Amino acid sequence: MNNMAKQKTNWRWVDWLYVFTIVSQLIYIGYYLEQMLTNPKDNGTLSFAVLQVVAGLVIATLPIIIERFMPYRFPEILYAVYLIFVYCSILLGTGLHFYSRLYYWDKFLHVLSAGLLAGLGYTVFNVLISKQLRQTISALLMSLFAATFGSTIGVLWEFYEFTGDSLLGLNMQRYMAKGHLLLGQAALLDTMGDLLADVLGSCLIAIIGYFCIKHNRDWLDKLTFTKK
């Protein structure tokens, strides 16, 4: 009984980061709900932003929900970067309009998410091989897998944006400006910039991972599922 109580109160540092993320989003939701009640004219814009942040609450909590149904915990460092990404993209990006206020905010998030996915690539690789093989397999091979994994997910995301733009008339790939179609290379700048950012973020983590593995193979333990 005492051991169970200790486990419940033994919070990891990433759990505090989760609390900060959730509390920040709740404060935002409360403030803008009050604004919607006092300024009904702006309800359309505000309600969309609030709904996005509410979705952010669910997205930030997903790893905790998934962990409930499996005997393992996600790697702390990956969960931390995941929470930072959710905070930066949904609360700061959409809620506080950083996407429109800071020109390169979207590209920064592509680099961050690609780095996160490259780290997840190491985790996936660790799952696919035995612990004994992990001690001898080529660090270059693992890093190439991580870089490819992160970059490929970035490409799939661009497919998703293209599908949304084609079927729903959205402008996720920013091929329009002020309602007018962009022409030539201008229409490709956003997509190509996103892909370059994805490759940059993936390769950066893969290079760091390569040298960390060469220095100490135990570094991979930071990117491995741990038993509860």
Rank of each mutant, 00 (worst) to 15 (best):
residue 1 M to I: 15
residue 1 M to S: 14
residue 1 M to E: 15
residue 2 N to W: 11
residue 2 N to H: 10
residue 8 K to I: 10
residue 11 W to S: 01
residue 11 W to N: 01
residue 12 R to K: 05
residue 13 W to D: 10
residue 18 Y to H: 05
residue 19 V to S: 06
residue 21 T to C: 14
residue 27 I to M: 13
residue 31 Y to E: 10
residue 32 Y to T: 00
residue 37 L to Y: 05
residue 39 N to T: 06
residue 46 L to D: 02
residue 46 L to V: 00
residue 54 V to C: 12
residue 54 V to P: 04
residue 55 A to H: 12
residue 55 A to C: 15
residue 57 L to S: 10
residue 60 A to C: 15
residue 60 A to Q: 02
residue 62 L to C: 11
residue 62 L to G: 07
residue 64 I to T: 09
residue 68 R to Q: 12
residue 70 M to E: 06
residue 70 M to L: 07
residue 70 M to R: 09
residue 85 F to L: 13
residue 86 V to M: 09
residue 88 C to W: 06
residue 90 I to M: 11
residue 90 I to L: 11
residue 92 L to C: 09
residue 92 L to W: 07
residue 106 D to S: 04
residue 107 K to T: 12
residue 110 H to Q: 11
residue 115 G to M: 02
residue 115 G to W: 00
residue 120 L to K: 09
residue 124 V to E: 07
residue 129 I to A: 02
residue 130 S to I: 03
residue 130 S to Q: 03
residue 131 K to D: 10
residue 135 Q to K: 12
residue 143 S to W: 02
residue 146 A to S: 02
residue 147 A to R: 01
residue 154 G to E: 12
residue 158 E to H: 06
residue 159 F to A: 00
residue 161 E to S: 02
residue 162 F to N: 03
residue 163 T to K: 09
residue 163 T to P: 06
residue 164 G to H: 07
residue 167 L to T: 07
residue 167 L to P: 04
residue 168 L to F: 08
residue 170 L to V: 08
residue 172 M to E: 06
residue 174 R to A: 13
residue 175 Y to P: 07
residue 177 A to C: 11
residue 183 L to E: 15
residue 185 Q to K: 13
residue 186 A to D: 10
residue 191 T to D: 14
residue 192 M to L: 15
residue 192 M to C: 15
residue 193 G to Q: 15
residue 194 D to W: 05
residue 197 A to C: 15
residue 198 D to I: 08
residue 199 V to K: 08
residue 209 G to L: 09
residue 212 C to F: 04
residue 214 K to M: 11
residue 214 K to D: 10
residue 216 N to S: 00
residue 222 K to E: 13
residue 222 K to D: 14
residue 223 L to G: 00
residue 224 T to V: 00
residue 227 K to I: 08
